[in-house]
Design a binder for these strands. Structure first.
Length: 257
DNA sequence: ATGACGCGTCATACGCGA
């Protein structure tokens, strides 16, 4: 079973490259972040015609996440517990064939001296509490998406340039580590222990050409899901060509049973 | 320190991303 996560940076702007890629790679489950569209305008028919059912948590202009699946699924929630006032569309959870799929678009948090940063820390605290509870269910859980966290120095080209950034902040990385210490496995790092791997390159300053990237898109697996992990990698070729997203897809392959 | 690039918007400048 192939599951992919992709921050597409706008479904309207990405449709022309996204659809051929889905056709070619035929993931069983695909989760998107930054769809930047309201639910009623999401191009559902395009993906339905490719055989996908979908859950959408959209928002005008910003954020927005979606889950596409070839197999039927049950929608669990489009709200991360812990803050009823939170209006930002950053969370979507479904259960599909015994697997719990939790798609997140974690807040960026920059600049650090603003409410955006406290929102990020609060959001991570809510996520940690929720995922801690999920682990007790002893299920196959796939927690994936754009985490906006650079876990370690190896996960960016120039660590010193990120030292004051919300993506590499000590508290942010500590909060991320809580998930790993709780029992979630970082699938990409597990399959590629010492490689420099990035999933996002800024549009500016020739970042892609200079390979000045960051590894901030992650797939985290509960122990039962990790038992089935076969492979995990990123699609570098999707950063090339006309009008790419600034992120690339990250996928996992899980063995059956 | 600044601005660059791309996306979307009550568009023709600005907020936001990372």
């Amino acid at each position: 079973m192939k599951i992919v996560s992709f921050n597409i940076n706008g479904i309207r702007a990405r449709l022309e490259t996204l659809v051929p890629w889905i056709k070619k790679n035929t993931p069983d489950i695909a989760v998107f972040q930054e769809i930047k569209i309201q639910n009623e305008f999401f191009p559902e028919k395009v993906f339905a015609d490719l055989g996908y059912k979908m859950a959408i948590n959209g928002q005008k202009s910003f954020n927005g996440v979606a889950i596409l699946s070839r197999l039927p699924f049950d929608l669990v929630s489009s709200k991360l517990p812990g803050d009823e006032q939170d209006e930002q569309a950053r969370f979507l959870e479904v259960v599909c064939g015994g697997k719990r799929i939790v798609c997140i678009y974690l807040p960026n948090g920059n600049p650090k001296n603003t409410e955006k940063f406290s929102y990020k820390l609060n959001w991570m605290d809510r996520l940690n509490r929720y995922c801690h509870d999920l682990l007790e269910l002893e299920e196959e859980i796939i927690l994936l998406g754009d985490f906006n966290v650079i876990p370690q120095a190896i996960d960016c080209k120039f660590p010193e340039l990120w030292k004051d950034d919300a993506l590499y902040d000590d508290d942010v990385r500590s909060n991320f580590n809580y998930l790993l210490n709780s029992g979630f496995l970082d699938a990409l790092r597990n399959c590629n222990p010492s490689k420099e791997i990035y999933t996002q390159w800024d549009y500016r300053n020739n970042a892609w050409e200079a390979n000045n990237g960051v590894r901030i898109d992650h797939v985290l697996l509960s122990p039962l899901a990790a038992d089935k992990l076969n492979d995990c990698w990123v699609e570098y070729n999707m950063r090339e060509g006309d009008k790419p997203s600034d992120h690339v897809p990250i996928w996992i392959k899980l063995d059956k049973n």
